[in-house]
Design a protein around this nucleic acid. Structure first.
Length: 489
RNA sequence: GGCCCGGUGGUCAAGCGGUUAAGACACGGCCCUUUCAAGGCUGUAACACGGGUUCGAGUCCCGUCCGGGUCACCA
């Protein structure tokens, strides 16, 4: 059986886009599910916009997501190199052959002339495409044009009157007429191949068996197919997955919010959550489970459960999934992820002490259940840090005026004074014993203590809040809130 | 505009000629709970429209409408 080889071929012109990430993921899942290989190929023939920095960023984002590859620019492999600009020498003989067989020709039209042509077509209401002006130049004409200092491109001569059919794995057969495609450029005037040419050569040369990519490439595919045929190369199987749309149903872009993978990382999303969410965008599992680890995705993935219709990026669902993963993660991991956010907000020093690290761990434990993203942690810190407390409402204030309040708060203070160290484990029984000894309902103990300590009626479990605050802050905040409420005890 | 792809609740989606048209997110209610969150139960809500084909159409065909993609010396 033929080896399954799929590829993700980003152009390094910016950070990894969320849509690109999903293409990469589907390729990865397909490769893993079928025992095949994933190849990363960098399509950097647009030298103006490509950068090595973007390439590194893209590879880093893929790694962050947990997508690994078998061959690529950083690990080489049997079909190296994996950067298009380093593969140029391999293209020459193919181009020569096309030229020799008259399947391609030099074109001397300048950009200005092409633009004028296009305007002409548009004005006449015809489809704008290359008019074939240079298709049949004689040697003499070529020499003259070259003497003018014109640098030619090479165009592919698209065969006329042909139906080109794509047997698409997700869409079924898609048919294009070759007459709808004008002779297109395969070699630019700078000598570099265009995308449509390089992609065909590389996919063929790298023995790619399945091309899984976004739907925006569907209308390019007939160009590529005619090239495969002209060169006598074996066609891969194609699978075009639909696009990811923004809330207004247009293609995802900056104005829809975060579009790159790094942005999600920076906002405090977990890679497993992003992967899980992306997988569900356009693919659906056979069962009703929605939460999948990478291993489970691999075990369940198949191309025939990939949807044809575009999907709107639903931030709410991403947040929900992320929250699920945050709750499932060990506290230490959340603490680790939370640290930079807390540092940036000034709650923790640049190089945290051991005590600070323990404190962050407590904070993470307290807030873990409440977060949609790790970055959200900062919004909750008012309750857990600082001397600054204000009572949020008259309703809260009234609770401090209940007649049992002095009793409760005094007993509470006595109890924590006896503890050498405040820990969730020690506070939990302490609070319980308080209700018992005072013969009060839970609410009559927990609520006044909560308000005295935080000024709020809601928040994380008290047995977390108390150790996070520590004895000193507790004393200060009690003084402050009781003063504000005007209660003696 | 030409060509191509798509159209099931607000969103993601299951469905492959016969179902009370799943499930999830979001939203509302109830329960649990010291609060909130989580969790459990529950409710509102959909086959774009019009013609066919068929005993029977969300499912097949055609048209209309709507959305998207693409028409580069970008990828």
């Amino acid at each position: 059986m033929k080896e399954i080889r799929v590829r993700f071929a980003p152009s390094p012109t910016g950070p990894l886009h969320i849509g690109g990430a999903r293409s990469a993921l589907f390729n990865y899942l397909y490769a893993k599910a079928s025992g095949g290989k994933l190849i990363i190929r960098i399509e950097d023939t647009d030298i103006e916009r490509s950068s090595r920095q973007s390439e590194e960023n893209i590879l880093e984002s893929l790694k962050w997501l947990g997508i690994t590859w078998d061959e690529g620019p950083d690990i080489a492999g049997p079909y190296a190199p994996y950067r298009q600009t380093e593969r140029l020498s391999a293209y020459g003989e193919f181009t020569k052959r096309l030229l020799a067989e008259n399947k391609a020709y030099y074109c001397y039209c300048s950009p200005e002339e092409l633009e004028a042509q296009r305007q002409d077509f548009m004005a006449k209401g015809e489809l704008p495409r290359y008019n074939g002006k240079c298709a049949e130049l004689t040697e003499m004409e070529k020499a003259r044009l070259e003497a003018e200092g014109r640098i030619p491109v090479i165009r592919f001569r698209v065969p006329l009157n042909q139906d080109i059919v794509i047997h698409d794995l997700v869409r079924g057969d898609v048919i294009f007429e070759s007459n709808g495609i004008g002779d297109f450029v395969i070699i630019k005037s700078d000598g570099l191949p265009t995308y449509n040419y390089a992609v065909v050569l590389d996919d063929a040369l790298m023995k790619i068996s399945h091309v899984i990519r976004a739907e925006e490439h569907l209308s390019n595919t007939p160009r590529q197919i005619v090239l495969y045929e002209a060169l006598g190369l074996e066609l891969p199987l194609f699978a075009h997955i639909s696009l990811i749309l923004g809330k207004d149903r247009s293609k995802m872009s900056k104005r829809h919010g975060a579009t790159s993978v790094v942005q999600y990382k920076e906002l405090g999303y977990l890679p497993q959550a992003v992967v899980n969410f992306l997988a569900l965008l356009g693919w659906s599992p056979a069962g009703e489970e929605e939460l999948f680890s990478m291993e489970e995705l691999i075990a369940n993935f198949s191309l025939d459960r990939v949807a044809k219709n575009p999907a709107v990026f639903d931030m709410d669902k991403l947040s929900w999934i992320n929250g699920m993963y945050i709750r499932k993660s060990p506290v230490s991991e959340i603490a680790h992820m939370a640290l930079p956010f807390l540092q940036q907000a000034g709650y923790v020093s640049g190089s945290p002490t051991e005590d600070e690290q323990k404190w962050v761990e407590l904070v993470a434990a307290a807030l873990q259940e409440h977060l949609a993203t790790v970055g959200d942690i900062v919004e909750h810190m008012g309750i857990l840090a600082g001397e600054d407390v204000t009572i949020e409402s008259d309703e809260a204030k009234a609770i401090l005026h209940e007649e049992t309040f002095p009793l409760v708060i005094r007993a509470f203070q006595e109890k924590i004074a006896q503890l050498p160290e405040l820990t969730p484990e020690s506070i939990k029984p302490l609070l319980k014993s308080l209700t018992k000894e005072l013969k009060l309902g839970g609410k009559q103990v927990y609520m006044p203590v909560r308000i005295a300590l935080t000024g709020k009626m809601h928040g994380p479990e008290l047995f977390y809040v108390i150790p996070v605050l520590g004895k000193e802050l507790i004393a200060k905040r009690i003084t402050k809130t009781t003063q504000e409420a005007g209660v003696q005890f």
